[in-house]
Simulated assay, not measured.
Amino acid sequence: MGAGQSTAAGQSTAKVQDVGTPEERAQRIRAAQHAMAAAGTECPLTPEQRAAAAAVSSENCGEGGCPVGADGKMSPFNNELEHPNQKPAPDQPFALPTKREKSTIPRAGTEDTWTYPSPQMFWNAMLKKGWRWQDDQLSQKDMGNIISIHNANNEEAWKEVMKWENLLHPECANPKLKSFKGDAKNISPRAKFRKLFLGYDYPFDRHDWIVDRCGMKEVQYVIDYYDGGAVDPQSKLFTILDVRPAMNDISNIWDRMVVAYWRFKFETLGFTPNLPIPPTEGHSVNH
């Protein structure tokens, strides 16, 4: 880690170098993501953390005063600040972008899609939940990779949700995501079963998503994030997602039984599914 020091607007900007081999950097990202998932379960803040967060907000207000929502009011839809702080933290070692990327995930109640937090918002939110960057020694490049992985995992999770919805509930052509939250310490019954009887490790994170099925029904999905082992030095990916409807509704239980039967029939017994075959490049399907 570099030792260069400079100050601007009262902030420490110690430079953190992107040191180590690609494998070492990948492992650093992996460790940081585990720590961030664990930190995400620490809300509400302890009195000490709340006091520290208030001090950070006060220091970042400047002469113009704080925007509405600087009191830390949380949105019930994504468990994030309604008016998130985009200012650098006092001890932040490097600058982070404030630009936010649009997801492909449709947002319930709107004609728009969800917007991902900027790297700066992500950093501030994790600090507010108790994570400390010094423990993971992240570089600016590491943080960019973490944001990319975070967004890619969400896109992949939505694809898995859509498989369930499209196959089992075609009556709704356009389900939308209403809300979501992370709860790493709430181990699902399925994860406990896999640990006890199949020898899996526990997932390092868990998310719960509420999906609006065209106004007809709201469905809870559980997403367990498993550590897939060796990190790809190029993509930095290591997460395996287990996405399924929660066992809190008779319709969800039936859906999971249907999918379990399909898997047994086609994967275990080797039956060929009677599904339409999409045309390949250079060939067309005659109707």
Score class of each variant (00 low, 15 high):
residue 119 P to R: 13
residue 119 P to K: 12
residue 119 P to L: 09
residue 119 P to M: 14
residue 122 F to E: 10
residue 122 F to M: 14
residue 123 W to F: 14
residue 123 W to P: 05
residue 123 W to N: 01
residue 124 N to Y: 03
residue 124 N to R: 12
residue 125 A to R: 10
residue 125 A to M: 09
residue 126 M to I: 01
residue 126 M to S: 13
residue 126 M to Y: 10
residue 126 M to G: 06
residue 127 L to Q: 12
residue 127 L to S: 02
residue 127 L to H: 11
residue 128 K to I: 03
residue 128 K to V: 03
residue 129 K to W: 08
residue 129 K to P: 01
residue 129 K to I: 00
residue 130 G to I: 04
residue 130 G to D: 07
residue 131 W to Q: 06
residue 132 R to M: 08
residue 133 W to P: 00
residue 133 W to K: 10
residue 135 D to V: 11
residue 136 D to K: 11
residue 136 D to G: 04
residue 138 L to R: 10
residue 138 L to M: 12
residue 138 L to C: 09
residue 138 L to P: 05
residue 142 D to Y: 05
residue 143 M to N: 03
residue 144 G to E: 10
residue 145 N to P: 00
residue 145 N to D: 14
residue 145 N to Y: 02
residue 148 S to L: 12
residue 148 S to N: 14
residue 148 S to P: 00
residue 149 I to A: 08
residue 150 H to M: 09
residue 151 N to Y: 06
residue 152 A to F: 02
residue 152 A to R: 12
residue 155 E to I: 05
residue 156 E to K: 14
residue 156 E to C: 07
residue 157 A to H: 03
residue 158 W to C: 08
residue 158 W to K: 09
residue 158 W to F: 09
residue 160 E to G: 14
residue 161 V to A: 02
residue 161 V to C: 08
residue 161 V to F: 11
residue 161 V to K: 01
residue 162 M to E: 14
residue 162 M to K: 15
residue 163 K to C: 08
residue 164 W to N: 09
residue 164 W to T: 13
residue 166 N to L: 04
residue 170 P to E: 05
residue 170 P to D: 06
residue 171 E to S: 08
residue 173 A to C: 06
residue 176 K to V: 00
residue 176 K to T: 07
residue 176 K to R: 14
residue 176 K to F: 00
residue 177 L to G: 04
residue 177 L to Q: 08
residue 178 K to N: 12
residue 178 K to V: 01
residue 179 S to F: 00
residue 180 F to N: 06
residue 181 K to R: 15
residue 181 K to E: 10
residue 181 K to Q: 13
residue 183 D to F: 10
residue 184 A to K: 02
residue 184 A to L: 05
residue 184 A to R: 01
residue 185 K to A: 09
residue 185 K to S: 09
residue 185 K to M: 12
residue 186 N to E: 08
residue 186 N to A: 12
residue 187 I to P: 00
residue 187 I to F: 03
residue 188 S to Q: 04
residue 189 P to E: 03
residue 189 P to V: 05
residue 190 R to Q: 12
residue 191 A to F: 04
residue 191 A to Q: 07
residue 192 K to I: 02
residue 192 K to R: 13
residue 194 R to V: 02
residue 195 K to H: 07
residue 196 L to Y: 04
residue 197 F to Q: 08
residue 197 F to C: 06
residue 198 L to S: 11
residue 198 L to K: 14
residue 199 G to L: 04
residue 199 G to W: 01
residue 200 Y to T: 07
residue 204 F to G: 06
residue 204 F to L: 07
residue 204 F to D: 01
residue 205 D to T: 03
residue 205 D to N: 15
residue 208 D to S: 15
residue 208 D to T: 14
residue 208 D to E: 14
residue 209 W to M: 10
residue 210 I to M: 15
residue 210 I to D: 09
residue 210 I to R: 06
residue 212 D to V: 02
residue 213 R to Q: 14
residue 213 R to K: 10
residue 214 C to V: 05
residue 215 G to K: 09
residue 215 G to W: 05
residue 215 G to T: 06
residue 216 M to G: 11
residue 217 K to S: 07
residue 217 K to Q: 08
residue 218 E to N: 15
residue 219 V to T: 15
residue 219 V to R: 11
residue 220 Q to I: 02
residue 222 V to M: 08
residue 222 V to C: 08
residue 222 V to W: 02
residue 223 I to L: 13
residue 224 D to N: 12
residue 224 D to P: 07
residue 224 D to W: 01
residue 225 Y to P: 00
residue 228 G to D: 12
residue 228 G to E: 04
residue 228 G to F: 00
residue 229 G to T: 11
residue 229 G to E: 05
residue 229 G to N: 12
residue 230 A to D: 13
residue 230 A to L: 12
residue 231 V to S: 01
